[in-house]
């Protein structure tokens, strides 16, 4: 059974997670000022409009920063996963997302490395967006 933290979607984030389940990476876009934002939130931080739409993005991005987790916390949950990579990824469309870099030697991850989203259905209801080198 999957025993890692799972997102609990709320009123603001539910479309994002639904998109992932459907294999689409969505970012929120302000209807009023057109600024894109992630993570999702009700008020546009630029113009405070509450009107927004969801736009599918390319899923292409580059590595802004990354860590390699070697000591698992909690140990019984991540013991089988270390070493694993968490990265901040700058998406081509101008927003930043945190995720894992998979299908890659952790020691080979580098700044500005080009990555592409891939979708990992970890449970029946939750699909996580992850990234692999291209």
């Amino acid at each position: 059974m999957y025993n890692k933290p799972l997102p609990v979607p709320d009123a603001d984030t539910e479309p994002f997670w639904t998109g992932c389940r459907e294999g689409r990476l969505l970012v929120q876009c302000c209807t009023a000022c057109e600024a894109k934002r992630l993570p999702p939130e009700r008020f546009c931080p630029h113009c405070h409009s509450v009107d927004s739409s969801w736009q599918a993005v390319s899923g292409r991005g580059t590595v802004y920063s990354w860590i390699v987790v070697r000591h698992p916390v909690p140990g019984d949950v991540y013991g089988g996963d270390v070493p694993y990579v968490v990265a901040l990824i700058d998406l081509a469309e101008g927003v930043r997302i945190a995720s894992n870099i998979i299908d890659c030697d952790p020691d080979a991850v580098a700044a500005d490395m080009a990555v592409q989203v891939t979708f990992d259905p970890v449970t029946e209801t939750v699909t996580l967006p992850k990234f692999r080198p291209v």
Binding site: K4, P5, P7, V8, D10, A98, S99
Partner: peptide, 19 residues
């Protein structure tokens, strides 16, 4: 400690990735 398995709010976008 990192024991919370339900990722609410902002942690929806961090904790599920083991961050």
């Amino acid at each position: 400690g990192g024991r919370e398995m339900q990722a609410h709010g902002i942690t929806q976008f961090t904790a599920p990735f083991g961050w």
